[in-house]
Protein backbone atom coordinates (compact mmCIF):
# COMPACT_ATOMS: atom_id res chain seq x y z
CA UNK A 1 0.00 0.00 0.00
CA UNK A 2 1.34 3.42 -0.90
CA UNK A 3 2.56 5.54 1.99
CA UNK A 4 0.36 8.43 3.16
CA UNK A 5 0.33 10.83 6.10
CA UNK A 6 -2.47 11.49 8.57
CA UNK A 7 -4.30 14.81 8.27
CA UNK A 8 -2.43 16.10 11.31
CA UNK A 9 0.93 15.21 9.84
CA UNK A 10 -0.07 16.65 6.46
CA UNK A 11 -0.66 19.88 8.29
CA UNK A 12 2.79 19.64 9.84
CA UNK A 13 4.27 19.03 6.40
CA UNK A 14 2.69 22.23 5.12
CA UNK A 15 4.10 24.12 8.07
CA UNK A 16 7.57 22.78 7.33
CA UNK A 17 7.31 23.82 3.69
CA UNK A 18 6.35 27.35 4.69
CA UNK A 19 9.73 27.88 6.39
CA UNK A 20 11.93 27.60 3.30
CA UNK A 21 12.38 29.43 0.02
CA UNK A 22 12.11 26.15 -1.91
CA UNK A 23 10.70 22.65 -1.46
CA UNK A 24 14.00 20.78 -1.51
CA UNK A 25 15.11 22.36 1.77
CA UNK A 26 12.26 20.55 3.51
CA UNK A 27 13.76 17.18 2.56
CA UNK A 28 15.37 16.26 5.89
CA UNK A 29 12.59 17.51 8.19
CA UNK A 30 9.96 15.83 5.99
CA UNK A 31 11.91 12.56 5.98
CA UNK A 32 11.95 12.70 9.80
CA UNK A 33 8.21 13.32 9.83
CA UNK A 34 7.57 10.37 7.53
CA UNK A 35 10.00 8.07 9.31
CA UNK A 36 8.20 8.75 12.59
CA UNK A 37 4.90 7.92 10.88
CA UNK A 38 6.30 4.73 9.38
CA UNK A 39 7.41 2.74 12.44
CA UNK A 40 10.81 4.36 12.44
CA UNK A 41 12.09 3.64 8.97
CA UNK A 42 12.26 5.00 5.44
CA UNK A 43 10.85 2.47 2.98
CA UNK A 44 10.86 2.72 -0.81
CA UNK A 45 7.26 3.94 -0.52
CA UNK A 46 8.32 6.72 1.84
CA UNK A 47 11.04 7.78 -0.59
CA UNK A 48 8.53 7.86 -3.46
CA UNK A 49 6.11 9.87 -1.33
CA UNK A 50 8.73 12.45 -0.28
CA UNK A 51 10.10 12.74 -3.82
CA UNK A 52 6.58 13.33 -5.14
CA UNK A 53 5.68 15.94 -2.56
CA UNK A 54 8.95 17.85 -2.83
CA UNK A 55 9.24 17.51 -6.61
CA UNK A 56 12.60 15.74 -6.38
CA UNK A 57 13.83 12.59 -8.07
CA UNK A 58 13.70 9.43 -5.97
CA UNK A 59 17.45 9.08 -6.57
CA UNK A 60 18.04 12.42 -4.89
CA UNK A 61 15.91 11.56 -1.87
CA UNK A 62 17.57 8.16 -1.61
CA UNK A 63 20.97 9.86 -1.74
CA UNK A 64 19.97 11.95 1.27
CA UNK A 65 18.59 8.95 3.16
CA UNK A 66 21.80 6.95 2.74
CA UNK A 67 24.06 9.84 3.77
CA UNK A 68 22.63 10.39 7.24
CA UNK A 69 22.91 7.79 10.00
CA UNK A 70 19.56 8.57 11.61
CA UNK A 71 17.48 7.48 8.65
CA UNK A 72 16.80 3.76 8.92
CA UNK A 73 16.64 1.74 5.75
CA UNK A 74 15.26 -1.21 7.67
CA UNK A 75 12.60 -1.32 10.33
CA UNK A 76 14.19 -0.91 13.79
CA UNK A 77 12.90 -2.21 17.10
CA UNK A 78 10.06 -0.46 18.90
CA UNK A 79 12.71 1.35 20.95
CA UNK A 80 16.17 2.42 19.93
CA UNK A 81 19.07 2.62 22.36
CA UNK A 82 22.29 4.44 21.46
CA UNK A 83 25.30 4.08 23.73
CA UNK A 84 27.83 6.86 23.18
CA UNK A 85 31.26 5.35 22.64
CA UNK A 86 33.34 8.46 21.88
CA UNK A 87 36.38 9.50 23.92
CA UNK A 88 34.90 11.33 26.93
CA UNK A 89 32.35 8.58 27.45
CA UNK A 90 34.94 5.85 26.86
CA UNK A 91 37.14 7.42 29.55
CA UNK A 92 34.21 7.08 31.95
CA UNK A 93 33.31 3.47 31.20
CA UNK A 94 31.08 3.39 28.12
CA UNK A 95 32.71 0.15 26.93
CA UNK A 96 31.38 -1.61 30.04
CA UNK A 97 27.94 -0.05 29.53
CA UNK A 98 27.81 -1.31 25.96
CA UNK A 99 28.94 -4.83 26.92
CA UNK A 100 26.37 -4.86 29.68
CA UNK A 101 23.60 -3.84 27.26
CA UNK A 102 24.67 -6.52 24.79
CA UNK A 103 24.57 -9.18 27.46
CA UNK A 104 21.29 -8.10 28.97
CA UNK A 105 19.52 -7.73 25.62
CA UNK A 106 21.18 -10.79 24.12
CA UNK A 107 22.15 -8.92 20.95
CA UNK A 108 25.25 -7.33 19.50
CA UNK A 109 25.41 -3.63 18.69
CA UNK A 110 23.45 -2.92 15.54
CA UNK A 111 20.98 -5.75 16.22
CA UNK A 112 17.37 -5.90 17.40
CA UNK A 113 16.04 -8.17 20.13
CA UNK A 114 14.08 -11.12 18.79
CA UNK A 115 10.78 -9.79 20.14
CA UNK A 116 11.38 -6.61 18.13
CA UNK A 117 11.35 -4.42 21.20
CA UNK A 118 14.83 -2.92 21.31
CA UNK A 119 17.51 -2.05 18.75
CA UNK A 120 20.93 -1.51 20.30
CA UNK A 121 23.32 0.87 18.60
CA UNK A 122 26.39 2.91 19.33
CA UNK A 123 26.55 6.66 18.84
CA UNK A 124 29.34 9.16 18.34
CA UNK A 125 29.62 12.04 20.82
CA UNK A 126 26.12 13.26 21.71
CA UNK A 127 27.22 16.54 23.34
CA UNK A 128 26.80 15.10 26.79
CA UNK A 129 30.46 14.49 27.62
CA UNK A 130 30.30 16.22 31.00
CA UNK A 131 27.72 13.72 32.19
CA UNK A 132 29.41 10.62 30.78
CA UNK A 133 28.76 7.79 30.40
CA UNK A 134 25.47 8.35 28.68
CA UNK A 135 22.97 6.82 26.33
CA UNK A 136 20.02 7.98 24.30
CA UNK A 137 16.77 6.00 24.38
CA UNK A 138 14.40 7.08 21.59
CA UNK A 139 14.28 10.87 22.07
CA UNK A 140 15.58 11.04 25.62
CA UNK A 141 19.07 11.31 27.14
CA UNK A 142 20.13 9.29 30.17
CA UNK A 143 23.31 10.67 31.71
CA UNK A 144 25.80 9.82 34.48
CA UNK A 145 24.82 6.18 34.00
CA UNK A 146 25.48 3.43 36.50
CA UNK A 147 24.92 -0.26 35.75
CA UNK A 148 21.87 -0.28 38.05
CA UNK A 149 20.42 2.65 36.17
CA UNK A 150 21.07 0.90 32.84
CA UNK A 151 19.31 -2.20 34.16
CA UNK A 152 16.32 -0.17 35.26
CA UNK A 153 16.04 1.51 31.86
CA UNK A 154 16.38 -1.70 29.87
CA UNK A 155 13.93 -3.55 32.12
CA UNK A 156 11.35 -0.87 31.50
CA UNK A 157 11.85 -1.18 27.74
CA UNK A 158 11.73 -4.97 27.76
CA UNK A 159 8.89 -5.55 30.20
CA UNK A 160 6.73 -2.43 30.28
CA UNK A 161 7.41 -1.30 26.76
CA UNK A 162 8.04 2.30 27.75
CA UNK A 163 11.21 4.27 28.42
Amino acid sequence: MAFALSAERENELDQILSRYPNKMAACIPVLHLCQDANEGWVSADVIAFVAGRLELSTAQVKGVVTFYTLFNEEKPGKHQVWVCRTLSCALRGSEDILRHCEKKLGVKQGETTRDGKVTLRTAECLASCGTAPMMQVDKKYYENLSMTEVDRILDRLLYDGDA
Binding site: R19, M24, C27, P29, L31, L56, F67, Y68, L70, E124
Partner: peptide, 27 residues
Amino acid sequence: YVHTGAGAYICGEETALLNSLEGRRGE
Protein backbone atom coordinates in the same frame (compact mmCIF):
# COMPACT_ATOMS: atom_id res chain seq x y z
CA TYR B 1 13.33 28.81 12.21
CA VAL B 2 14.74 25.67 13.81
CA HIS B 3 16.07 23.22 11.23
CA THR B 4 17.11 19.69 12.02
CA GLY B 5 19.97 17.46 10.87
CA ALA B 6 19.96 13.69 10.73
CA GLY B 7 23.17 12.42 12.24
CA ALA B 8 26.46 13.38 10.58
CA TYR B 9 29.39 15.09 12.32
CA ILE B 10 30.53 16.61 9.04
CA CYS B 11 27.40 18.79 8.92
CA GLY B 12 29.08 20.93 11.59
CA GLU B 13 31.47 22.12 8.87
CA GLU B 14 29.81 25.28 7.64
CA THR B 15 29.50 24.50 3.94
CA ALA B 16 28.36 20.92 4.59
CA LEU B 17 25.81 22.46 6.94
CA LEU B 18 24.58 24.74 4.15
CA ASN B 19 24.18 21.79 1.79
CA SER B 20 22.31 19.91 4.48
CA LEU B 21 20.08 22.91 5.14
CA GLU B 22 19.24 22.96 1.45
CA GLY B 23 18.10 19.33 1.64
CA ARG B 24 21.20 17.73 0.15
CA ARG B 25 23.80 15.25 1.30
CA GLY B 26 26.02 16.98 3.85
CA GLU B 27 29.14 17.18 1.73
